[in-house]
Amino acid sequence: MAGSDGVATLLQQGLSNDFVMTARVVAALPLLFFVPGYVVLRSLGAARPLCYATFVSAIGISLSLVIVAGLVLNIFGALDGAGWFIALAPAAVIGYLILSPQRFAFKTIALMPAVAFGAAALLAAAAIEAARAGAIAQRQFAYTELWLLPADGASARTVIVGLFNQEELDVPYALELRSDDHVVARWPDLRLAAGERRSWIVPVPTAERRVEALLYRTDDGVSLYRRAWIDTR
């Protein structure tokens, strides 16, 4: 029950996050690329009726205004969401006041072209999704990452040793942490699933000079696979 609640919460969060993101994108696009230019055109009396040329002008001027506005926001170090909102919100309000009394005479699109455009949009989205899937699936290398770092970033009284399996299959490893000529820690039967990442924090005797991590793959004989080391002094 708790599990299903968790799933429901996650789904809800995911949906709400997606919804918020979509709403922000839908609001931001005209706010940046149309409204400022249209407001300027109207205020200068240069706007023709909302025709093709006016639409193009509004986009071109909006782009130019945003670029110049960026220069102004830079003075205040405010090239962030709040800065842009404050800069563009007046344009949005004025734009609303200008645009709201107008009755746009949107012509109804006939059914056939509407269906065809819808189908085209779906097919285009499918094409991009197919390309995305292909790009994500492409792996030119199968590999394992091994790393060894001082845990506190400097002195290495304790070290972090980590592994990341990108071999695209479950791999059995043996990991050994040696300090000078003796073993500090050993993981003889380590199995990481594909895509699994693990790390350990291991204390090291202070007198030792060098700590070395040795990784073996145990599925094709026991051969040294990766090495990393740090000086502890």
Partner: peptide
């Protein structure tokens, strides 16, 4: 600047 504006707002 244009990219930053869209990225920050959206």
């Amino acid at each position: 600047i244009v990219t930053n504006a869209l990225s920050s707002l959206s």
